[in-house]
Design a protein around this nucleic acid. Structure first.
Lengths: 146, 146
DNA sequence: TTGCTCCTCACGTCACGTGAGGTGGC
DNA sequence: TTGCTCCTCACGTCACGTGAGGTGGC
């Protein structure tokens, strides 16, 4: 709904997402990212800012959760399912249907949250161990200075 | 200092660490893990429980921080440097030396902690976003039920 | 028109996976 | 001795990296 629908080229998208142009093409090649709509063979790929945000999101999930592209694909499929549910939600007035849709969406989110929480717990534990060692060394240093 | 110094075979180590035997051999091949001491060509690799703990630690760092094996090697080198400092620490009585050693060790730890903290911040942010969406869906569901 | 970025092959690399064929230890 | 696990090549695969040679748009 913005006035300027500026479209970005692959190099700019790479810059903004932290990927390389090659990686973006590769993700398109394996079907992880949708192909730039109605692009003629050999012509430049163009991306909207929404698409860039989407790619950032995908990269974040991959890196933070340490997923393979296969696992990432599955997770994105689950997300599309949620998006589909949103559309269904707007299409129905039946409270029973609406409950089913919400419940389903919550289930998808739950799966994702479980992954993230597990990661966080692991990293917090590692951080605590390192903090403890640092505390120990600091005390030793303090004793030495006194 | 335990009574039984049971040595484990590569399959058992793989089981315990979540790696494959191939991966353990590969890490040895590229010098990431030290080669099983005085093993004759073609004979079985044997590992102590300390070595297994060490490998677990390495795997954890790699996965949680999302490092390449090259970066992981560098980080492990920094750790060895810290271990070396510990030995030096025990070898000297000079307070000036001791201060130098502690300060150096703290610097190494600081680098490691920076990496970990950054990861944690990123993952916490993602978790917060997902939580928020879940809260939203929950409220919607609650309204529907009332 | 000149630069720069983009395009498509296509081969290289990193971090292993996966057999093939053979040997070692409870 | 029989099984199972281990051994060493060595080729395959995933997720891109890195040119080569050519075209497109401000």
């Amino acid at each position: 709904v913005t006035a300027t629908a500026h479209r970005l080229r692959i190099g700019e998208v790479a810059e903004l997402t932290g990927l390389t142009a090659r990686t973006i093409r590769y993700y398109e090649e394996i079907g992880l990212l949708p192909a730039s709509a109605d692009r003629e063979q050999g012509k430049h790929r163009l991306y909207s800012e929404d698409e860039v945000e989407r790619i950032k999101e995908i990269v974040r999930l991959k890196e933070l959760l340490g997923l393979t592209l296969e696992q990432l694909s599955q997770l994105l499929d689950a997300e599309s399912a949620r998006a589909e549910l949103r559309r269904e939600w707007h299409a129905t007035e039946d409270p029973g249907e609406q409950r089913r849709i919400l419940t389903e969406a919550l289930r998808h989110l739950g799966t994702q949250l479980d992954l993230v929480r597990q990661r966080r717990a692991e990293i917090v534990r590692l951080e605590a161990e390192l903090d403890e060692r640092r505390e120990f060394l600091h005390e030793r240093l303090a004793k030495l200075e006194s």
